[in-house]
Design a protein around this nucleic acid. Structure first.
Lengths: 329, 329
DNA sequence: TTGTAAGCGTTATCAG
DNA sequence: CTGATAACGCTTACAA
């Protein structure tokens, strides 16, 4: 019994093997509890069975949900997921991409948003392009021109839609707590907010304040808002965590939400359901799973070589932190 | 210039290479943007540069924090992290361990707790033992006898300590919302609660109710508690998420926390800080980073072959959801 | 100090 | 249908 024979049955090759031999191989493998080296297998394959995902911080539920989507389809397809935290550092992204490239990953998924005018982005783009030349699929989950397929949502429209909702509730003076400075997603969400306000003839009532992406940023922003009355009719936060932070600060100060002021977020993470936050639901899990599917499905054939953008749809979720404005002006 | 020479300089071998040659190699590598195949390198090494971590669900912040700890030290040490979600299924753990073993991982970390009397555990133990024979380090982050080093906390003591705190606040009738049925950690935390109550002469006042590990479980448990008055003086939840769920249900029902009833959790995740939850802080990040450190540090030498348990310390964190009982009996 | 060659565990190719 | 062998890209004896 030659190694080649064993390989043929164990790897599910379509090379003909007699039933008797096949059985013998299987029996031996079972007894030995043998399983082939994924490393050696990867050496002779176009790619290893590894799929990489680059997140800013896995502790951030936004990325955890994406990573879960990736891992679920990767695992089901017989792949193993590699994970790296890059803390929004483009240099780190380049470094981790290289590490995953060294393992000849089937593909790597860029989950995080980038910065506008980031001086390092061209280098990342170059690194992505080289990786793709080596047969590694790349997928971006945010609007940033990495020269690879993108699966994302329309952040501008998402912010626009929820702003419209707030406006429909008769709110006229609305504060927007922005995301981290310089991030593309920050800009897009702000743009959506501003555009919606403008269209509603409420440009005067639009008020952007600096924020971030975490609870503390939202809390602090709300505190600052309260320090300079009058309070707006509503506050829209760059994401759910920020909204919850703001909500918490407001209520701590004895302000009735949504009685005196409405609060809304974006993302619809678990926390939003828990506090009853009005928000817009983003298909994070689907983004992750779809990206992984793209990789494992194209892993056999040629890379389409495209850099098409797929935009998944979002959905307004109204809950208990927003209400129609009843009061004074 | 032979490949061996290049290997020697690029892999940082201590084999002597002339400065001139070394420079030439470095220059060539830089120009070609060459970086060695981690796959081929792994083929001839005792292990690949991969570190695996098995979590129940990365979306659960408990595991996300652990995974972050793992990845930080893995990355710093030049390794890449593999992640798998096992949804608390022992069979899945066995399967993913196998997958990681196939990649000759330097080590794999079992982040989740197991079940008491789990019929599949012996198979897992066997799988772990085989993996270790192949030189793969294994580390468990929970009290379960996997036959490998364990880095964990004393869940019994943690529950005991926070119960003591509640008792010191003059609460006598305390409800404990349990974790998922059958889990070891559920049992330990319940035991700690019960022991503390007993020691305080309050065995009568101890009341365990079924729960789970998520927000909904806590919410539902609190609703059930409210349906059968009188309300206890305090409720201790199996973890923070459950506590927050209970807190939310209680406050929704117009009950003053901590005025009428105190609420406490275990874990001290981000959410606990945000809602001001009294809880006990567990060194999750340290558990992950320490486990990874164990792996990357012992990866060169022999496996100690031990299965020693390291118990990290926890810390009571008192915040605003607990207060001294003032009222009636 | 440099080069040559063996070997790691697969799969694919080509003979038998 | 089965078997030998090359090749994948690296590191490490061993030779020169």
């Amino acid at each position: 019994m030659a190694v080649a024979t064993a390989s043929r049955v164990l790897s599910g090759s379509d090379h003909p093997v007699s039933a008797r031999t096949r059985a013998k191989v299987l029996a031996a493998a079972a007894k030995l509890e043998y399983s082939p080296s994924a490393l050696a297998r990867a050496m002779v394959s176009p790619h290893s069975g590894l799929v990489g995902v680059l997140v800013s911080d896995i502790v951030n539920p936004y990325f955890a949900v994406i990573a879960r989507g990736v891992d679920d389809v990767a695992t089901r397809a017989g792949y193993v997921t590699m994970l790296s935290n890059v803390d929004r550092r483009t240099d780190t992204e380049i470094g981790r991409l290289r590490a995953m490239r060294d393992y000849r990953a089937a593909g790597v998924i860029f989950a995080g948003s980038g910065y506008v005018d980031d001086p390092r982005t061209p280098d990342l783009v170059k690194a992505v392009s080289r990786a793709r030349e080596e047969g590694i699929r790349a997928v971006s989950l945010a609007d940033r021109d990495l020269g690879c397929p993108t699966i994302t949502v329309d952040n501008r429209a998402a912010a626009h839609d929820i702003t419209d909702h707030l406006v429909s509730l008769c709110h006229r003076r609305i504060a927007f707590i922005e995301g981290p400075p310089g991030m593309t997603v920050t800009q897009h969400r702000r743009d959506g907010f501003l555009a919606a306000m403008s269209t509603a003839g409420l440009a005067e009532g639009a008020h952007c304040v600096p924020g971030g992406f975490d609870f503390e940023a939202g809390h602090a922003a709300a505190v600052r808002l309260m320090a300079r009355p009058p309070l707006p009719d509503a506050v829209l936060a760059a994401n759910d965590e920020v909204a919850v932070g703001a909500l918490s600060a407001l209520r701590q100060a004895g302000i009735d939400v949504p009685g005196e002021i409405s609060v809304a977020g974006i993302n619809d993470l678990r926390v939003a359901q828990h506090v009853g936050l009005t928000t817009v639901s983003l298909p994070l899990y689907e983004m992750g799973s779809m990206a992984a599917r793209h990789i494992v499905e194209s892993a056999q054939g040629e890379d389409a070589g495209d850099s098409a953008t797929t935009t998944l749809s979002h959905r307004l979720i109204t809950r208990e932190t927003t209400a129609r404005r009843t009061s004074t002006a």
